[in-house]
Design a protein around this nucleic acid. Structure first.
Lengths: 322, 322
DNA sequence: TTGAAAGCGCTAACAT
DNA sequence: ATGTTAGCGCTTTCAA
């Protein structure tokens, strides 16, 4: 910057003004400065800028796994909003590991991000309190924070969606409906089980519930066990997109009626088409990012907790008769 | 840091030593410092550290679109390697826009990333030369840089893969094979067309080639046109994952034999299963990231250009008779 | 083993 | 419209 200033024959501060688009610079002077910048290949040192001004133009995003289409789409939506506000996105995958989640948040805070969007893996987020009090806003997405933390959340109507699926299957004559879900320690899995159970009422049967990390072998074992029961299920509700796909493979032709939570590409091209309760990960990302930017721009109102709706998309598998 | 120092009764520099794990600090002193850090909730200001030391512990990744499974998986692989080296990942989607690509690279350089991994959207990368000369290494992935830039690249054997697909279809008796590809200005699309043409030889027919951004309406129009020819194609080669899926929808039951470039989830569950020439985006990300870190660690050998192999996965659609 | 002082590149605050 | 000065929080260099 010093070099640019002397090349353009102006003071340091004038270069700073041009670089930051601040008003009060003669157009001719600005032009000379820009030429010098071009000539010298100057690029502003963001670290120095952040250090001095305290402003970052960067937000941090912690998700579970970018390679998961759900989070990939969510990431893209967050990125688009972020870009619209002239900011960059730092992001990382926690792989469902609370330690990694905390490391990522720590690394983001050390880089003085202006705000955080977090899909939490852990159940205790008290480590975030100092940052929140220091003025770094955070929005929790898909799952709420641990107890005692009053932050904005953007969640899906998990229980309602599960209820939708169950009522759809009941309406097609099913009374033996099984639930395949992720580990119950995961918030969304627990909420979906809750909605499933509530909608089934007295038809709920403990033996038709299996919850675990969806490995092919594990899901196959669960499916085999259930199909071998005296009164096997005639319908299946799968608690997330990965589970739906894993279950379809495990079923291998023995397909009972099936409704899955989460939409996925090609669900319409399978035979039969897969009926799903669809969330909108892009909307989730957009809503969370817009909320974060409102906070970053000084909105100090009470914390907000939008609940995003889901919709059932019938495609065939959920309309098979009992 | 100053507060921590006075709380622990030591000098600033000692705190710095502890924070950075530098040797030559009495264990007892270090412990006192750590307690003070814990007590005050201190977290190191990365911007100040970068400003002074010049080191960043951050790398930048420019891809086309995180929401695309191919790039999502590649991102994750890059992230994993990056994390292994104790670094963070800044990433952004160019949406196939050269201007955006350049903006992203500029933003990363302003943040003084230690290195860049770029899936280029543009055809001119001379803007990168100052950064490269300033010592920021770059690795180009999936597509090479514009002319005149001597950087490492990690590419897939696009032409070879297309040849593999064509020979597979020829082997099943097809002589009228159509090619649906992305815009020819995209490197991979051009290379795949090249391989397709070379493998077909005199059987190549201009009328059986359509290249464009794969919108549902556009692909449908192409497919309809080709199927209406006097001598319609009996087999189809689709030039990337998105195209394969879009074409499957457009075909809607009128499926000729089909081999697609790029594997995709559920390709095995469709009926018939979709035969593909599979790339390995995770390997691509890993190879590129490892190469970048070697450069960041001072390897100044001649630029490298690994060509990643592909493999044909027969699943049914590519084995349909002519 | 520990500390003091200088300065990284920039912007805020205050001149001119 | 432009310039001067101080200092952001850290690491480097050198000294004790």
């Amino acid at each position: 910057m010093k070099d640019v200033a002397s090349a353009a024959g102006v003071a340091l501060k004038t270069v700073s003004r041009v670089v930051n688009g601040e008003p009060g610079v003669h157009p001719g002077t600005a032009e000379r400065v820009r030429e010098a910048i071009e000539l010298l290949g100057y690029s502003r040192n963001e670290s120095a800028s952040v250090l001095r001004s305290g402003r970052t133009a960067t937000v941090g995003l912690v998700i579970e796994d970018v390679a998961d289409p759900f989070y990939a789409v969510l990431s893209r939506a967050v990125e688009d909003v972020t870009t619209g506000y002239g900011c960059m996105l730092l992001s990382g995958s926690s792989s469902e590991d609370p330690v990694r989640e905390r490391e990522l948040v720590g690394a983001f805070c050390a880089r003085r991000v202006g705000g955080l969007i977090v899909v939490p893996a852990g159940a205790d987020h008290s480590y975030l309190r100092p940052e929140l009090e220091a003025g770094t806003p955070a929005v929790f997405v898909d799952r709420p924070p641990g107890p005692g933390l009053d932050v904005d959340t953007v969640l899906t109507d998990n229980a309602g969606g599960a209820g939708l699926a169950v009522r759809h299957l009941l309406g097609h004559g099913h009374t033996r409906i099984a639930f395949l879900g992720d580990e119950p320690s995961i918030f969304t899995a627990a909420r979906r089980l809750h909605g499933f159970r509530a909608a089934l009422g007295h038809l709920f049967d403990e033996r038709l519930v299996a919850m675990r990390t969806p490995t092919p072998a594990g899901v196959r074992a669960d499916v085999d066990r259930m199909l071998a029961l005296d009164a096997p299920p005639t319908a299946l509700f799968t608690g997330n997109g990965r589970l739906t796909v894993t279950a379809l493979r495990a079923l291998a032709g023995r397909l009972p009626a099936l409704v899955g939570f989460d939409d996925f590409e090609l669900a319409d091209l399978l035979v039969p088409g897969v009926t799903v309760v669809a969330q909108d990960p892009a909307q989730m990302g957009r809503v969370a990012a817009e909320l974060l930017f409102r906070r970053m721009h000084g909105d100090t109102g009470p914390s907000e907790h939008p609940l995003l709706p889901v919709r059932l998309i019938p495609r065939g598998s959920g309309e098979l008769p009992a």
